[in-house]
Design a protein around this nucleic acid. Structure first.
Lengths: 205, 205
DNA sequence: GTCTATACGTCGATAGAC
DNA sequence: GTCTATCGACGTATAGAC
């Protein structure tokens, strides 16, 4: 009779895989990809180095999995922030996304840097493009709605959305790398966003 | 008597190195990093694959050299664009940088994509950070001047500069990847830039 | 330019599930 | 008894220090 994987074994394997991912996320948040060595991940997960390869064929694949997990979490957070409330302007919602993301980033600077800018394997780099498109879509939907309602001046919603994604990411990289971020970063970014959307300064002073 | 490298030999080596870089730049512009295999570079330079390693110890190092060469060229182009003329506003100069970069990018889409977003070796990724800082500094100088003169509303010049770098880069990635770029891209980016700087729409309608 | 340190990925041996 | 999951040390490549 051939060997069959019993539910108990499968459950243990699943738990082990989860432990690996959790360990990786912890290391990512503390030391970025630089601290995510296979040996360190294994040690934190309580298994041997070689055993990690039972779940992920290479470090690159593990890194991609970690990246995707973090991205899912962040996209959910900003989507929620954008959806909250029922009578808010489109500009308000876009700003809420920026503020939410920036706030979370500044609270977990090492993780945010890993997500946004840390030099990484090309496989993870490719995922960054996906990540940005997801964020762009969250923006574009709101901006298009604002333009339709006449709340925002005419503009190419997708282009503005892309630009805001890039602006937010790049503006955070500086504060994330150069020591402690100043307290004015998030408000400054919000002002930038409102101006870029075409909301006159008088309307948000 | 030990082997001495004669001037003639040295000259030939230098010429060969130049040929390698030129070949790499050509391939980069046509097919991005994906087309820059060591074999292809060697073939175009008219030498054997192994000979490339006489000049660059690894593909990563060659890639970094190519990246730096392109970046030098682009930074020079936008710096010139920003410096041109003697009585232009700071906002004008910032927009000129954006328009120059975007215009050049859309004329060499494959090269621009390689420069901005193509997944690459981490060593090149690290260079991207340097590249963006250089662009940021070009912006920040002009923005700070504009704020000092009262031409632009109060703002953190470095933050706005970073944001504009990210915005320009990200806004171009879409058009660069999705087939032929629409003709409205550059003007739309210019409008975004002016608004983000805090120039009222009335002043540039 | 050499040398050391670090990290990825593999492998044979062992323990344990079927 | 057979097959599999796990261990952890090893080979190899590479990067950084001196």
């Amino acid at each position: 009779m051939p060997y069959r994987r019993t539910p108990a074994v499968q459950a243990r394997l699943d738990a082990q895989r989860t432990a690996v991912v959790e360990a990786g996320l912890g290391l990512l948040a503390e030391h970025g990809y630089a601290g995510c060595t296979m040996a360190a991940v294994a040690a934190r997960a309580g298994i041997a180095t070689g055993s990690v390869y039972r779940h992920f064929p290479s470090k690159a694949e593990l890194s991609v999995e970690l990246f995707r997990t973090v991205v899912r979490r962040e996209v959910a957070a900003v989507s929620d922030a954008a959806a909250l409330g029922s009578h808010r302007t489109a500009a308000d919602r876009v700003v809420a996304v920026i503020e939410t993301f920036a706030g979370r980033a500044l609270k977990s600077p090492r993780l945010a840097y890993a997500l946004l800018a840390e030099p990484v394997d090309p496989a993870v780099d490719a995922e960054r493009l996906v990540f940005r498109r997801a964020f762009r879509d969250v923006f574009a939907e709101r901006i298009a709605a604002g333009v339709r309602d006449g709340e925002l001046p005419p503009q190419d919603a997708v282009l503005t959305a892309s630009a805001l994604v890039g602006a937010g990411a790049e503006a955070l990289i500086g504060p994330l790398t150069n020591g402690p971020p100043g307290p004015g970063t998030v408000p400054a970014l919000a002002t930038f966003t409102l101006r870029a959307l075409g909301v006159p300064d008088a309307d948000h002073a």
